[in-house]
Simulated scan of single mutants.
Amino acid sequence: MKPLQLLVAVFTLSMAVVVSARAEVTGSHYDYTINGAAYQGYVAHNSNLDESRGTVLIIHDWDGLTDYEERRADMLASLGYTAFAIDVYGRDNRPTSMQENQQRSGEMYADRAAFQRRLTAALDAVDDIPGGTDNVVVIGYCFGGAGVLELARTGAETEGFVSFHGGLGLPEGQDYNDVAAPILIQHGSADPVSGMSDVAALLDALQAAGVEHNAQIHGGARHSFTVYGSGDYDLDADRASWQALTAFLEERLD
């Protein structure tokens, strides 16, 4: 290794140690109710900070709130944000099999009004979570990525929306005319669930509605390219999409 490269590597490692030392990530499950029904999310924040940089609301994949979303929440908390991984299905209604994943997510797709109520109620709960702030960006993965667009179409007042390899189809009777904040799409060019024609249709719809938007397409990446351990996991696409997210958060929340 050349001297300059060694110096850069040592400096980078030193900065990482300093940041790690200053970050005291506190994560815990958080119970809330919607119309009297019990839901359980997960909240992570940096308790060493006098003030959070903003709140990131995370919508889970079709298998419900798992350690995947909790890990993402912890990662965001280590950057100084408050992260709230919400529960769409209900505390006592968590899927435990592929069949139940399909059933639970299918119920939400079949009843869009109920889906929207649960998403907006979780957004309203941000006011009460530890470290919660008024400035919120909503993100989601796969089913959660579709949920991001679902919430955006309600006209929810946030600072932005980010969909990772989400379902991009537009439900019958809906449009993007009421979207109140910018949308960022992170998608793989080889995604068999929502292909490039779906991406193009979404971008056309956002453009027609006058919604500020951007999209980053990861060449060759398939569905679930950010999900560790899955057959579709793509390290390069995961890193690039995370960098795009953090840049978006700095622009919209800081």
Rank of each mutant, 00 (worst) to 15 (best):
Q216S: 14
L184I: 06
L202W: 04
L245Q: 07
H29T: 13
R118H: 14
V148P: 06
D61S: 13
D124N: 10
E150L: 08
G41K: 05
D254M: 09
H45V: 05
I58Y: 07
D191S: 04
E172R: 04
Q243P: 00
S224M: 13
H60I: 02
V227Q: 10
R94G: 02
S163Q: 03
N177M: 11
F164S: 07
G210L: 06
T120P: 00
V88E: 11
L13D: 06
G145E: 00
E212R: 05
G36N: 11
E100N: 08
G106S: 09
P130V: 01
G147V: 00
S197T: 15
R71G: 13
G145D: 00
E250T: 08
A113W: 01
N46T: 10
E250Q: 08
L168A: 04
G167E: 08
Q103R: 15
D134R: 10
A208L: 14
N35I: 03
A200L: 12
V18M: 09
V138K: 07
A247L: 12
F11T: 13
A152Q: 03
D232F: 02
L7H: 09
G219R: 02
R91F: 11
G188V: 03
T33F: 03
R222F: 00
Q5I: 15
Y30G: 06
V18P: 04
T120Q: 06
V211S: 05
N135E: 15
V193K: 12
E251K: 11
L235S: 15
Q40M: 14
G220K: 05
D124M: 09
V138S: 04
A244T: 04
S28V: 06
P182D: 13
G229T: 13
L245K: 01
T12A: 15
M1F: 12
A38C: 08
Q207C: 12
G27Q: 08
D61I: 07
T133D: 10
T66G: 05
R252A: 01
R118A: 08
F11Q: 09
N93R: 00
G220H: 05
Y30N: 01
Y32C: 02
D175W: 14
D31S: 14
S241A: 11
Q186S: 12
P171E: 05
I185N: 03
L149K: 03
E24T: 07
A16K: 02
G145A: 03
I59E: 02
R71C: 05
Q243Y: 11
L203T: 11
Y68M: 07
I217G: 00
D191H: 05
A180C: 08
S189D: 06
R222V: 09
A44N: 00
A152M: 03
M75G: 14
A152S: 08
L202D: 04
G145F: 02
G41F: 10
T120E: 09
Q186T: 08
R252D: 02
M196C: 00
F248W: 03
